[in-house]
Each structure stands twice: as C-alpha cells, then as structure tokens.
C-alpha cells in the first residue's frame, strides 16, 4: 500500500499565493477521484482504514479566522453525530477550496472530508459541484463502515456539492 506522506496535523492553509500541491494539479475532479479510488480499491478493510487515517492527518487545521465563524454561521453538518463544519469556498483566483473542521475523535469523517478537499482543490466551482454519489461504493468503504455510518458521509457530499453549486450560480 502506498502510504501518503504527510506530516501530523497536515499542511498549513496557504492564503492564496502558494496553493497546495493538488490545486496545481491540472486533472479534473473525476480524474483525481479515480486516482484516489484506485488507491483504496485493492486494500483490505484494515488498510482502507489506515489510508483514511493518512488522509485525515493531511487535512489542514482550521485557520484561526474560521474558528469564530463556527458559532455564527450555519456551517455544521447536522446529520453527523460528530461536529463537522464545512466551508465550500471560491478563492480569489477563481478555484474551489473546501475548508473544514472535523473533530479529532472522528478520523473516518476527517479522512473522507480530506478526500473531497483534494478532489476539488483549485478546480472551477461548477466542476466541484459535480462530486458524484458513488465515491464510498467505489472505494469499497460501504462494507467497511456499514450503512449507518455511510449515511453521514453521504450527507457531507451532498452539502459540499450544494455549497459549490450555489457559488457557481452566484458567479454566473
């Protein structure tokens, strides 16, 4: 298995100047997802969870300026038992960025959000709004996590997609 080499606590968010590596990747959302699906596909259950933990470790810590916004904005995904806050955004250069805060006691959710963040980073928001519904199936995570847990993850995909779709509409 290819372990993802990221430091504990993840990459720092860089404002706009230096984009994270995946934002400079010219591949589209689908191609990036295909690559990540391939990473998961042949792993056994334990390895899949280990890879999710690697992704979780790569999710950047929430920038300080977002911390205060948690209390006043409707950013929480209420369908999730654990606190999950999502900001689907458009950076000034025009690309998509998913800023997220997931409680450390939910590494599965955190890892999955990191997958989504990597898939959309720097892509046009209209394209970020086309995140497909079958990511969990294709990664083989449904069997590993069970139906009750995947419900929360699906609602995260829906929430992210909706957020980017709104941004795309406001841009048009």
């Amino acid at each position: 298995m290819r372990r993802r080499l990221v430091s504990e606590g993840g990459r720092p968010w860089t404002a706009d100047a230096a984009m994270p590596e995946e934002s400079r990747d010219s591949a589209g959302v689908r191609v990036r997802l295909d690559r990540m699906v391939e990473e998961f596909a042949d792993l056994d259950a334990r390895e899949k969870l280990e890879l999710l933990v690697d992704f979780a470790n790569g999710l950047p810590a929430l920038p300080a300026e977002y911390e205060a916004r948690k209390a006043v904005e409707d950013r929480r995904v209420h369908e999730c038992q654990t606190p999950v806050f999502l900001w689907p955004e458009m950076i000034p250069a025009g690309g998509a960025r998913l800023v997220a805060d997931v409680a450390p006691e939910a590494p599965t959710v955190k890892g999955f959000v990191a997958v989504l963040a990597e898939a959309v980073a720097g892509r046009p928001v209209g394209e970020a709004a086309t995140l497909p519904d079958d990511i969990l199936e294709r990664m083989g995570l449904v069997e590993v996590l069970g139906m009750m847990r995947t419900g929360g993850l699906r609602s995260i995909v829906a929430r992210v997609r909706r957020g980017f779709a709104e941004l795309a509409r406001s841009q048009a």
């Binding site: 654990t82 590494p107 996590l145």
Partner: peptide, 20 residues
C-alpha cells in the same frame, strides 16, 4: 469511528465493530 482503533488501541486489544 472504526479508524480510532487503527490510529491506536490498547496493546493486545481486538476490535469488535457494532455494525459490521
């Protein structure tokens, strides 16, 4: 969250998942 066990568990502990 099953990934917690993967992150680190009590030495020698096995996992039993409520769902799977």
């Amino acid at each position: 969250d099953r990934a917690l066990y993967v992150q680190g568990h009590v030495p020698g502990a096995v996992e039993i998942d409520w769902q799977t």
